[in-house]
Design a protein around this nucleic acid. Sequence first.
RNA 1: GCCUGAGUAGCUCAGUGGUAGAGCAGCCGCCUUGUAAGCGGCAGGUCGGGGGUUCGAAUCCCUUCUCAGGCUCCA
Length: 642
Amino acid sequence: MAAVKLPDGRELTVEPGEKAREVAERIGKRLARDAVVAKLDGRVVDLDAPVDGGGLFEVVTRDSDEGLEVLRHSTAHAMAQAIMELYPESKLTIGPPIENGFFYDIEVDGKISDDDLPAIEEKMREVVARDLPIVREAVSKAEAEELYKDNPYKMEIVEALEDGDITIYRQGEFFDLCRGPHVPSTGALGAFKLQNIAGAYWRGDEKNPMLTRIYGTAWGSEKELKAYLRRLEEARARDHRKVGKDLKLFTFSPDVGAGIPLFLPKGEMLRHLMEGYVREVQTRHGYDHVWTGNIANETLYTKSGHLEHYREDMFPPMVDGETRIRLKPMNCPSHMTLFNTEAHSYRELPIRYAEFSTLYRYEKSGQLTGLTRVRALTQDDAHVFCTEDQVQEEFARALEIIREVLDTYGFEDYKVRLSLRDRGSDKYVADDEKWTRAEEALRQALDAAGIAYEPVEGEAAFYGPKADFMAKDVLGREWQLSTIQVDFIQPARLGCEYIGEDGEAHTPVLLHRAVTGTTERFMAVLIEQYGGAFPLWLSPVQAVVIPVADRHLPYAREVQSKLAGDGLRVEVDDSQNSMQKKIRENARQKVPYLLIVGDNEAGEGSVNVRKRGEKNQEAVEVEAFMRQAQEEISARGPRGRD
RNA sequence: GCCUGAGUAGCUCAGUGGUAGAGCAGCCGCCUUGUAAGCGGCAGGUCGGGGGUUCGAAUCCCUUCUCAGGCUCCA
């Protein structure tokens, strides 16, 4: 008689051939009802699978991550069935579960659009109502080939599989080549909603045919589905494109060009503050700021190798007689040129050049998105020329800057992806010893800083290993912001040298690093992180003085000039609106402080402070407000939000 | 670049073959206000651009520009 072990340590004897579902029922009725699949020694299996004992037996319920994944996968099948019934000549390809839902890529018989989604959803509900048992079936390769003789996509998948390792899942008339596992019947699906239709190339390759991808979301209960849809709503309300328009930060115009953001006064103030902050931190950490303009001779990029490796992402050249000029896509060649303007001794190293100039990259038109993907972008870029021995220390220094800045902005949850070479591959530049040392240096620096990192082999740049910072915003979305890269290659190509202790010429190692990445993308992330309610130090307008009646305007201006004299960014709302409306409008602009002034305030030299997000008011002396605001600004806190 | 969809007043949107609309913003008046919309009036459009179908086009077709969501999460 075989036995299984339960997660709580108990042992349970199982009959030969007893199914997972039956074992679950013996553990508990309620558990069996919530069960989606089971796990045997960590391997996920259908509830219909026999439990032959021996290992750890776990029941996976629909509220666990794994259970949800199965639920979503099964929902994808239900959608595929619905589509096959509505558009019978369609060809299925792949339909995996994804974060929050699922998709299915289908070569649809005919044309479908978003308007057809409700009908498909309706058909899916029919499939659910039929409560068809979902049955796993092992098939031979030959059988699979026969089943899919009219479907080249599935055929391609079958061809790649080992005979004896092929299964299909059936539910009623419908079947799909699938590894599984799945919920026991179509009636066991949870709450779902089809979301949108998109095109997707077969296997993601633009040389392949375009398939129709339908995205859906699926959850264990109606309540969870609703909560998810509400989260989506909230995210939309924070969308930087919407907030940027509402708060008059930036705009785009086809007259100027796609992917070229135009910053309005408040947006430019925000840029200025963001860059000023990074500049201050960098200066404190020994970086020097330089400026190398926006265009460069094409020959520079021939030397650096960019023209060869990066041509597609560069704007076409401007031709001036014999000379070809390019918009600058990266700063590194320019910084190396600066380095080469004089001879260097090892005593001068490290040399750290930082720059905020705008770069131009010819992103494909379909890739452009708000501020997160633009053609004119401003990196907070820096290049550190150092000796090999200094790599670890300089890496640690860059790390420190990045941590300080991310902390200030409230990105407390981030991880590092340490991209290493794939030892088997030859696409990386040789010199094994250098690589090993560099990788080791990066690991040690990360360990010393106590930062969790995930090493990923084969993701390194061709010129060296790198560490990318993945930060999570308040909505739980992950962004790649900061990066630190070690470069063994380019300095030699551009002829960078320093004279070492030994009197010989050596090639320095180059560290490329960016703190916030690009000002544009980081601004987008910040707008969404704060929902437009920036902390005081970062607010384009820090306070608006609102006179109760027109006769208080002179006092309002007096207050404004006092505060402005103290360096605060203050406006007076002298519009013809009522006081109530001024409060409403300025509150909607997320101004941190509204200062109401009327007879009382003018009489005693005070302001009535209404803080963003708070309704209670407080009368304070102008000087006291100034002190308090300055304190808040220099602490770069408290965090924004409303 | 490709797929699907969208583009109407500064903004948000209604209008599906028969005289281009609303709210907000703007301008002009009145009101002089005590903590999230005071009242009245006026003005505002090549319906993204170009071409076509039609007696007639915001509406149908073609084309072009811009925007949105996608385009390896690998059965």
